[in-house]
Nucleic acid binder design. Structure first.
Lengths: 194, 194
DNA sequence: CGCGACGTTGATTTGCCTCAACGATTGTGG
DNA sequence: CCACAATCGTTGAGGCAAATCAACGTCGCG
């Protein structure tokens, strides 16, 4: 598996010397995940951060009525984890599953901490990553509070134009917070009214 | 103004030598904010991170219908900022206002970056802060997707027991995402059914 | 082929909102 | 120190966005 994508993602925010790149790459463990295969199950302690090289994963929960709710999608170039569980090392509530056959790179919590000590710039990298993710999540909270379902859908279309065509509708519905039935109706109105 | 609280908050995650404490404290600018006074207005570029020593602030937006939605409360010991604007240095969409007469400490973006260079441990501190905040925000998103208004209220009561009594009901309503009228009804049912 | 997952559409229900009126409390200027 | 306005919380009646339940067509896949 190629490390180009992840090195490129990292070096967007920090500079690494060649030996640092080598060290970093040596800590990454490649893994293939088949479509519909679970990468993490609720109740597990999340042991790593996952970088998606190819394919697409999703993080979701199942509520007490059996309905699924999507916290995040991770197409290629994105990181995904159960942050709560990863940080606290307590059993988490998230499931992480592949939506397509995917190639990922795993960075264990232990190795991530090693990285902070050996290459302090990674402290900065993951700070920036967390901050950007925080901003996106805050925006989503405000959208959920202030926008109608249709407005959230329109926004999703503009923010994640590539995902729209790649994902099953029910996954998008479970992300913006409506039932698949209502999503279908909404979408057909949307197409009519252009 | 006392720096005990903020030093304590920082040293919960990183260790500082005395001269580092001094340097850090020297970068902080005390400010008093009166109740109902705005600390940041939408359209502003957010120039600092704010640590609340005493009192309570809130970050909120006003939607196109004139309704307010609360992103976060910051009682004493908490940080607050328009993270989007602070990071990007673009005009933000948040208002930050004092709910009570408050004492805060300001750390300008410039000084924060200076801190990263002079005391690298602060890179770690703000990484941890961002990660914890991210976890809380992710949890809130999942709650908004999967819980009813009453369940969100119950959860708010257990997670922020002190805020319940300190805040006007309409502020809590604007946080959990219901109208003040519905919040009132919900609360009276809640009291009846224990 | 046949089964299960997905998307669509219809009929009905409901959680929460809207609008409006009214008391209680706070705060503010004369 | 009082009068008055403003803000807040409460309650009622009616409305709407989205959920629920159910039926049905389509497609991909074992």
């Amino acid at each position: 598996m190629s490390y180009d994508l992840i090195l490129q993602a990292v070096e967007k925010h920090i500079n690494l010397r060649e030996e640092e790149q080598k060290l970093f790459a040596s800590l990454l463990k490649p893994k293939e995940i088949r479509r519909k295969q679970f990468h993490l199950t609720e109740g597990d302690v999340c042991p790593w951060s996952t970088f998606v090289v190819q394919g697409c994963l999703r993080a979701f929960t199942t509520d007490k009525n059996g309905f699924e709710h999507v916290l995040s999608f991770a197409p290629s170039g994105w990181w995904i984890a159960d942050m709560y569980s990863l940080i606290s090392q307590q059993p988490g509530h998230l499931n992480i599953e592949a939506l397509e056959d995917s190639d990922v790179l795993l960075l264990s919590k232990k190795d991530q901490e090693k990285l902070y000590l050996e290459i302090p710039a990674f402290e900065r990298f993951f700070r920036i990553l967390a901050e950007n993710s925080l901003v996106a999540n805050q925006q989503r909270i405000m959208d959920n509070l202030s926008l109608t379902a249709e407005e959230r859908y329109r926004k999703f279309c503009t923010v994640y134009p590539t995902l729209i065509h790649a994902l099953p509708q029910k996954q998008i519905a479970a992300y913006i917070g409506v039932t698949p039935e209502f999503f279908s109706r909404m979408r057909s109105n949307f197409l009519k009214n252009n």
